[in-house]
Write a protein that binds this DNA or RNA. Structure first.
Lengths: 358, 358
DNA sequence: TCGGCATCGCAAAACGCTTTGCGAACGTCG
DNA sequence: CGACGTTCGCAAAGCGTTTTGCGATGCCGA
């Protein structure tokens, strides 16, 4: 493996000159020297050693990705995560950065931060940190450039990228309300995720804003995976007065709800409407296709990556918060509820005589 | 950020001693010095600089992953790829390696190999290289430790990990034959993938071994993505004598075939049987659930990662080829074909899909 | 008392690069 | 003709480690 010295020797100049030529340095180099250097470099198949370069320049052209949760279903195989990561990779290719995955689950800053203060990466992208973890503050304390993806950073100096969760929820709930649903349940993920809390807040606000009652039993939290979704959807559907529509915190849960409905012999959307969140690829693989709130997944990743590099390269903009817009995609899992059996007129929400204040 | 010199100064010893203590070096160090070094290191929150260390030790504890195809649908969002990568990450965590993703699409060794000869990674995992690419030989020429995943390496010294594709195909085809199918089609991926060729060979062998005729039109190649699968499945189903069963080259194609069948008003499995390959998570999200050939996806990734590290760390075993066993998972998309009916026009296209209790 | 042998620790030489300080060569102008 | 820029190039000082060669110290038996 040839070094810069080999190139210098072969082209008859000093290593300084080689470096100046190859890195477009700030010193003038004669055309002749330049030519000879380039020729020698190519003849020797010279590639600068990245470690030596990083050692002196303090830049590696690499960023790290760390996953904020060690819960099942939120790593690379999660379709949400992999789509966002795809956006990160696309931007990384364009910006000529390498992406390093730190798969060791985060326990605490004391023990796990070391991996990021050794100069191996120029910055870190934090995926979906859970509430109460010292991940963000711990890394922020290191002085490494940071960007948080899919959650607020919670630190003043740390930018973050996510969508407008409240808006997304509102789109979904208004769609269901417009169809005439008044018994709408929320199938939630794990409440250690900021977005779960936020979506639930927005969910309750949307219903109460419309004057629709929300029994406590209509809100069930669990995890963002299929098993949890199945279990909790069954809980919802076996209530004495089951919901006519389920708003699921993400598509994985929504698909699980479809399965649960099928197991109970309920037809979707005739007997039950389901709305998901994310619009992962699998949303169009099921039949009927899933009505869902689309997140611009790859765009989230690409935006985060670009913002991180802006910080790294010292041309950071003022902006610290990037809230992208979700979009409702109406497909086949939502419809008007079955005409109400006896009792109430949908306009009179008061007549719903359930005793559960939320 | 503190250096080894700071630790040496603070603990009153030389940097050699610090290094010996921290790296369990081969020189004896008195208990007292050891104690002082460890104390100072922790007090200063010292982390060795990975670049300096890599520069001298020529080891980075990082491996690279490069994707062998730039075709759509075979990057990180592909469920097959992400599941295998999950296995890689699991093993990497355990072995204390970092995984770097090289997302720049490979064009040719001349231009793209440079990224791997700069000492940044200790080895490279090559995912599903396409036939005829100079990816494997190009990297092999660099002398970097290599392992190929999901395809034969094609180079004598380069180990590879994949499943027994022929066996997998045989399991699928024999299952269909046993059900009584004799009109079986093969919905293939792109023939620049070794496994596509191999599966097709095995497919033809299995049919001819059973004395079953295989019209040329029953074999269609395309790409491993949903659009291609839809299009080609429609081609198959609109043949004058359409197949009663489709063996799809992977689950994504199989799910596309299910969609195509639905669009034509065909019921699965009554009117058409479908078998997939891979057993990706989405296989159980559809209704009926997909009968498929399961690959041990994470195991493939973990095995490849471990083998790569064995090469890197110089304790490489003889074994160059790891062929794991696939397994047939019979679910709901396969059944006996309809009893042969007289030539009938597709007048009976009434698709009544009803939920079946599980 | 003294050589011999562990035991411990230090200085210094890499590793391959970037970048600064400085000097040589070669004009050009007063 | 001498002073002064300009243009080029080199030597050398790091960057933060690992690792080798060697010297100092103490302890043992002879």
């Amino acid at each position: 493996m040839s070094t810069i010295h080999d190139v210098a020797r072969q082209s008859g100049v000093s290593i300084t000159t080689v470096s100046m030529v190859l890195n477009k340095g700030n010193r003038p180099v004669s055309a002749e020297s330049r030519r000879r250097v380039l020729e020698a470099a190519r003849a020797l198949n010279y590639t600068p050693n990245a470690n030596a370069r990083a050692l002196v320049s303090r830049r590696t052209q690499a960023i790290g990705v760390v996953f904020g949760t060690n819960l099942t279903g939120l790593t690379i195989t999660n379709p949400y995560v992999s789509a966002v990561l795809q956006g990160v990779l696309d931007a990384a290719t364009e910006l000529e950065y390498v992406v390093s995955l730190y798969s060791t689950p985060w326990r605490d800053a004391e023990r796990d931060a070391a991996a990021f203060r050794n100069g191996r990466v120029d910055g870190v992208l934090i995926f979906a940190p859970v509430l109460g973890s010292d991940l963000v503050p711990g890394l922020a304390g290191l002085g490494v450039p940071l960007v948080v993806v899919s959650a607020p950073s919670g630190e003043p100096g740390v930018p973050w990228v996510d969508i407008d969760n409240r808006r997304g929820v509102r789109l979904a709930v208004e769609h269901l309300l417009a169809l005439g649903h008044t018994r709408i349940a929320h199938l939630m993920g794990n409440i250690d995720q900021a977005n779960v809390i936020e979506r639930d807040d927005a969910f309750r606000a949307a219903l109460s804003g419309a004057g629709v009652a929300l029994p406590a039993a209509y809100r069930v939290d669990g995890e963002y995976n299929h098993e949890s979704g199945m279990k909790n959807a069954h809980c919802l559907l076996s209530l004495p007065e089951p919901p006519t529509a389920i708003f699921a915190g993400n598509d994985v849960l929504a698909l699980a709800a479809l399965d649960a409905a099928r197991e109970r012999g309920l037809r979707v959307p005739e007997d039950l409407s389901v709305v998901g969140f994310d619009d992962i690829p699998a949303a169009t693989l099921v039949n009927p296709q899933l009505t869902t709130v689309r997140q611009p997944l790859t765009e989230i990743g690409a935006r985060a990556m670009r913002r991180l590099v802006e910080t790294i390269e010292g041309r950071a903009p003022e902006q610290m918060v990037y809230v992208l817009e979700p979009e409702l995609v109406v497909r086949g899992t939502t419809a008007a509820p079955r005409p109400e059996t006896p009792r109430t007129s949908p306009s009179d929400s008061r007549s719903d005589k359930r005793s559960q204040p939320s």
